[in-house]
C-alpha cells in the first residue's frame, strides 16, 4: 500500500515535507496502526505515538486522509490510496506525527475534571439512581484523544482561550453528575465569551469522534443549563 506521511524533525532544521512509502500489509494486518508498525521496521526514524492499540488510550490520533481518527481503529479496507497521514491539525508538531498536547491538557485541567463534593463522606459510597447514572452515558467514555478539538475551527482560531469540544464534554460530564455539588461554580467558569461561546455548532467534533460521542450535544446541554439557571 502507498502511504504519504508528514515528516518533520525540528532538530535537523529542515522544513516539513511529505514522504512516500510503500508497505505491503501481511496476513492479520487489519488496521492502519498495523501498517504503521510494519513501516517503522523499514524506517525507524518515523515518529508516532501508540500504546493500547485498541482505541482506549487515544494516543495514536492523527489526520488520516484529511479526517482525524485513531490509527488503531481505522480499518485498512476502504482507505483510499495513497493514505495521507498528517499530525493533528492546529496542534504544534514535536516531530512527524507527534504533537504537543500541553495546551489541550491545560484546558482539560481548567474544568476541574474530578468530583467536587464537600458534604460528609458516606459510610460506603455516594449512591446514584439508575437514571442519574444514565445521564453520564455518552460523556464518561471520552478518551482524550483530541480528535475532536483538533478538527474544530473555533479551536484552531483560539486554542489558548477556547476550551474546545473535548474539555467541554468533560466539563458537562461533571455538571451532569448527581454526586457533584459544584455545578454552579463550573457554570460560572464556563460562562465566558471564549471558554464556551466560541463554539459555533459546526459539529466537526461529533463527526470525527472515534468513540461515537457528541461533544456538540454536551455543549448545547451546558448552554441550556446556563439558560435555566438564569431564568
Amino acid at each position: 500500500m502507498r502511504l504519504n506521511i508528514y515528516r518533520y524533525d525540528p532538530e535537523r532544521g529542515d522544513p516539513p515535507r511529505m514522504q512516500a512509502y510503500d508497505v505491503q500489509p501481511e496476513a492479520g494486518d487489519k488496521k492502519l496502526l498495523d501498517l504503521l508498525m510494519r513501516l517503522r521496521v523499514q524506517d525507524d526514524s518515523l515518529s508516532f505515538r501508540r500504546s493500547c492499540r485498541e482505541g482506549v488510550c487515544g494516543s495514536d490520533a492523527m489526520n488520516i486522509n484529511g479526517r482525524n481518527g485513531l490509527a488503531c481503529l481505522t480499518a485498512l479496507d476502504g482507505l483510499k490510496e495513497p493514505i495521507v497521514l498528517r499530525p493533528l491539525p492546529g496542534f504544534p508538531v514535536i516531530r512527524d506525527l507527534v504533537v504537543d498536547m500541553t495546551q489541550f491538557f491545560a484546558h482539560y485541567h481548567s474544568i476541574r475534571p474530578w468530583l467536587i463534593n464537600d458534604e460528609p463522606l458516606p459510610e460506603r459510597e455516594r449512591l446514584q439512581t439508575p437514571t442519574e447514572r444514565e445521564r453520564l452515558d455518552g460523556l464518561y467514555e471520552c478518551i482524550l484523544c483530541a480528535c475532536c478539538s483538533a478538527f474544530c475551527p473555533s479551536y484552531w482560531w483560539n486554542p489558548d482561550k477556547f476550551i474546545g469540544p473535548s474539555g467541554l464534554l468533560q466539563a458537562y460530564r461533571f455538571i451532569a453528575d448527581s454526586r457533584d455539588t459544584a455545578s454552579a461554580e463550573r457554570l460560572d467558569f464556563l460562562d465566558d465569551v471564549y471558554r464556551l461561546y466560541r463554539c459555533r455548532t459546526i459539529m466537526n467534533c461529533t463527526e470525527v469522534c472515534p468513540k461515537g460521542l457528541s461533544p456538540s450535544h454536551a455543549i448545547e446541554r451546558i448552554r441550556l443549563a446556563l439558560l435555566q439557571r438564569s431564568s
Binding site: 460562562d191 465566558d192 465569551v193 461561546y197 448552554r223 446556563l226 439558560l227
Partner: peptide, 9 residues
C-alpha cells in the same frame, strides 16, 4: 454583551 447574554441576544 459577553458569554451567555450575547448568545441569548
Amino acid at each position: 454583551f459577553t458569554g451567555q447574554r450575547a448568545w441569548v441576544v
